[in-house]
Design a protein around this nucleic acid. Structure first.
Lengths: 240, 240
DNA sequence: GCATAGATATCGCGA
DNA sequence: TCGCGATGTCTATGC
């Protein structure tokens, strides 16, 4: 199988044939004029304009304009693609659950390319779960008397990142890899409320590299605590 | 200016020249073998693999594998691109704040394309703010005695979607365009707590098309309310 | 520039 | 399948 193929100003029939028969083998890119209708969880219209459209083997579809990271329109993986030929090329991308349809109308396709794209290996460092691991290994990062009990402790109102005990009772820890905001405090409060309702003696703390001023204010109103800790990045990758 | 250009197995010098001189005019797509290092808010390594790399005029960069919607690596708009030629082609994409670097190493570029992509018009229907508008116009959707006072009412602990009054006092409404979960309840509780601390008589309600079981349970624990309402989609766009 | 919250969020995980 | 929460979330908006 070739690494890639390229079609200059392809006929509609060529595009239809390729989208129907090669979609699961190649990443297919169309560049052309298109109008896009979307209906599903929301609905949208994108008027005729030159855009780049990408179809992936898993059924993902992305429609990109000339700016920003996010596509103008899209369809997540496990979508089905159907093509009809009329005055325009009509491409329907349908997703079953939730039921959503993307309708791509193209009066002209400037080019089409097929690329044999692979998955490759990928490793990320500096996630929230790595911070939790760090504290489990070194509980004294929180306090001298902190003993971790359970990660991802299930409550009826969500999972506690790390539940432990100190000399004064339970300690609920909510971790954030970036600055903690109001949302983090509300989330922690929810878990602490639950244990309190159960009659437990419980404290709660946010573990994050920083916390916003209003989040800190709210934290204090709720009588919760803040522990400063940053995620560890991979030492071999460095900013110049 | 041409609508697009295509280069089969371009020399490194050609890729460098184009990335340096045409990046603000065209959306540039590279298909080739690449290894990717990222360092910034987190850090990551993506091992050598065939991927599609897109550079947009605003500085956005996307690296796509063969599956899923989200790029493997990326850099948001306002990033700078630098190219160096050695044994491999080295592309550095740097973002100032937060300081982040993407390092793309390519032993081979299979093809390069330049596409004159436009922005186009875009309209979306069915957002949360449309639901708020609907309730402001028809307050009886909430209750006979509900009078809306202010949208996006600022508190020190976040914005209230819609603040109003009923015969029993203030009513804080938190809207969700999709099913409300625990997070929505915690958010609402935060606003209600604030007004309570101020000494106001206040009720709170979630306005959403549905609510999860545990969220409903938490809502009742907190003595908050639920109002069923769905976002309106554009009637001219219909699922078949 | 900072913070807050929405999003067709997407995605992975666990029950 | 559903629900929940992290995400290098991104993005728009208001202060």
């Amino acid at each position: 199988m070739e690494k890639y193929k390229f079609f200059d100003l392809p006929e509609f029939s060529t595009v239809k044939d390729i989208l129907e028969n090669e979609r699961t083998n190649y990443v297919i890119t169309l560049f052309g004029l298109c109008k896009i209708l979307y209906a599903g969880r929301a609905s949208s219209i994108a008027t005729y304009s030159s855009r780049l459209i990408t179809f992936k083997p898993d059924g993902s579809v992305l429609v990109h304009s000339n700016r920003k990271l996010k596509p103008v329109n899209w369809q997540p993986s496990s979508s089905e693609v159907k093509v009809e030929i009329g005055d325009e090329l009509k491409i329907y991308v349908e997703r079953k659950r939730p039921k959503e349809v993307l309708e791509i109308l193209m009066p002209i396709v400037y080019y089409l390319s097929l690329s044999k794209v692979d998955e490759g290996e990928f490793h990320l460092f500096g996630s929230e779960s790595e911070m939790v691991e760090e504290v489990v290994k070194n509980p004294e990062l929180i306090s001298r008397d902190f003993i971790p009990l359970e990660r991802e402790y299930q409550t009826p109102f969500g999972k506690i990142d790390l539940l432990g005990v100190t000399s004064t009772g339970y300690l609920v820890l909510e971790f954030k890899r970036a600055q903690a905001g109001l949302e983090a405090v509300s989330q922690l409060k929810r878990y602490v409320d639950y244990l309190s309702w159960k009659g437990e003696k419980v404290r709660g703390g946010i573990v994050a590299p920083s916390i916003s001023k209003s989040a800190l204010k709210l934290l204090k109103k709720y009588e919760l605590e803040y522990f400063q800790l940053s995620p560890k990045l991979l030492s071999t990758i460095r900013l110049k």
